[in-house]
């Protein structure tokens, strides 16, 4: 049970939140080719190291926020966002 720092609620058990995965920018749906769109849908960097990811403070403030987490150690960096 790792501790995830919510910008509103402070450090919380990860069971209070939901991990929404790697941040992947959404291409413009009007101009994106299908290839670009499906890269956005399916391809992930999946690094063994630092990744920027989204969490949802499901049992707390219900806020989506991003943090940086090292997937090799589960170390979490000061999110630096508010």
């Amino acid at each position: 049970m790792i501790v995830v720092p919510c910008p509103n609620c402070g450090p919380r058990n990860s069971s209070d939140l939901r991990n929404a995965g790697e941040v992947v920018p959404r291409p413009d749906p009007q101009t994106a080719s299908l290839h670009e769109w499906r890269s956005y849908l399916y391809l992930r960097e999946n690094p063994a190291g630092w990744v920027t990811e989204t969490w949802y403070c499901r049992s707390g403030c219900r806020r989506y926020f991003t943090i940086e987490r090292n997937t090799a150690t589960n170390e979490i960096r000061d999110p630096g966002n508010s």
């Binding site: 790697e22 391809l43 960097e45």
Partner: peptide, 18 residues
């Protein structure tokens, strides 16, 4: 477990999360 990392070595990204 390391398929993405190995595949990146060949420049072939994969639709995988570990």
């Amino acid at each position: 477990g390391w398929a993405s990392l190995i595949s990146n070595m060949a420049g072939v990204p994969l639709a995988i999360t570990t």
